[in-house]
């Protein structure tokens, strides 16, 4: 009951959050003149002569609250607006681009978290030993590698040097034709999942082949962060009195590490992992662009660059919902990792 009430409270919190986010973004876009915003609708220099007409048509010169009110009214009627950069309704654009991003996030997040936890805890357990130094070097390297450079390098090697081995995009054109034919049902538009649901091996293998490089690129950068976080959290745990007690009682070192220290060290990692997943679900702009893995990040960046305000607002709404939900899940997870935590009642 307590949990339900807590979830309901947190979901109610969404209303002011969404309102605040949209007002804030709308207000920022008002810094751009009506003409700047109207250029979204013009595709050639010749069309510039119609800018005043476009401004009038879309009401771009109306007062802030009138424009915001119009948009809000539209949203209340279930219409998030039109995404001009991709020529489809914003709501459809979210559902169109989210699967690609989710697919990346679903594959990358476990790799990032598990690798980060494993190497972070090993480094902490072997503090100032070669393993710790090696992990630190790898973490620094991973953290400091520019994503675009790593992505391009990997593509040049695995698509250029090893001819066609791991291509960019989400599917090869032959498989793309297959999945868009009537015989293949796109339940989720997450290609790997759809391939499994359709029991289609070639599509599954092709989708996996296309996923490897973007997942490696995203993981390399993010795993370093989790690794460092896990290491420091673990070191803090290892210094606690209950670890000393456990060791004094003769508990095996392996058990001390895995059961006592690691479990407690996981709390900050869970928090960050939640945000990491939410951030990845919002899209990895550079990775998606380099590998033509068009997802939320690509769509959002294109929308922002072209001042496609409906799309930017739609994306912001999505992200706000995403973060609130992830926060909720993280809070619930705390109760599982640390029994002392009670939702709504603080720490027992």
């Amino acid at each position: 009951m307590e949990l339900r009430a807590y979830i309901a409270r947190r979901l109610l919190l969404l209303i002011p959050v969404l309102f605040g986010v949209t007002v804030f973004i709308f207000a920022i876009t008002m810094f751009f003149s009506p003409t700047e915003r109207a250029t979204l609708y013009v595709t050639s220099p010749q069309g510039m002569r119609d800018l005043p007409s476009i401004i009038e048509q879309y009401g771009l010169d109306r007062p802030f609250f009138v424009q915001y009110g119009t948009w809000l009214n539209q949203v209340f009627h279930g219409n998030l607006g039109w995404s001009n950069v991709v020529s489809m309704p914003v709501g459809r654009a979210i559902f169109h681009y989210l699967p690609a991003t989710l697919e990346l996030a679903i594959f990358a997040t476990p790799i990032i978290i598990l690798t980060g936890i494993f190497f972070g805890s090993r480094a902490a357990a072997h503090k100032d030993k070669p393993v710790d130094h090696a992990t630190r070097v790898v973490a620094i390297l991973g953290w400091s590698l520019p994503t675009f450079w790593l992505g391009l390098l990997l593509m040049m090697i695995f698509y250029g040097y090893f001819r066609g081995l791991l291509p960019p995009g989400r599917l090869s054109s032959a498989m793309e034709i297959m999945v868009t034919s009537g015989d293949f049902i796109r339940y989720t538009r997450i290609n790997t999942l759809d391939a499994i649901l359709n029991l289609n091996g070639p599509v599954l293998l092709d989708a996996l082949r296309h996923l490897i490089l973007p997942v490696i690129t995203i993981s390399t950068v993010n795993v370093a962060f989790i690794m460092r976080l896990m290491r420091s959290s673990m070191l803090e745990s290892l210094g606690k009195g209950y670890i000393l007690t456990a060791r004094a009682k003769g508990v095996q070192e392996k058990l001390v590490i895995s059961k006592h220290a690691r479990r407690n060290a996981l709390i900050p990692v869970i928090t960050v992992s939640g945000y990491l997943f939410a951030a990845l679900a919002g899209g990895a702009v550079i990775t998606e662009t380099i590998f033509s893995f068009k997802g939320m990040g690509w769509w959002a960046s294109q929308s922002a660059l072209r001042l496609d305000i409906s799309s930017v607002l739609g994306f912001a709404l999505f992200m706000a919902v995403m973060f609130v939900l992830v926060n909720l899940v993280v809070d619930i997870l705390y109760t599982r990792v640390d029994p002392r935590v009670r939702l709504g009642g603080g720490v027992q």
């Binding site: 751009f32 003149s33 003409t35 700047e36 915003r37 250029t39 979204l40 013009v42 510039m48 002569r49 800018l51 072209r306 001042l307």
Partner: peptide, 8 residues
């Protein structure tokens, strides 16, 4: 877009 705004 800002340039266009400043030209036209």
């Amino acid at each position: 877009p800002t340039i266009l705004d400043n030209i036209f």
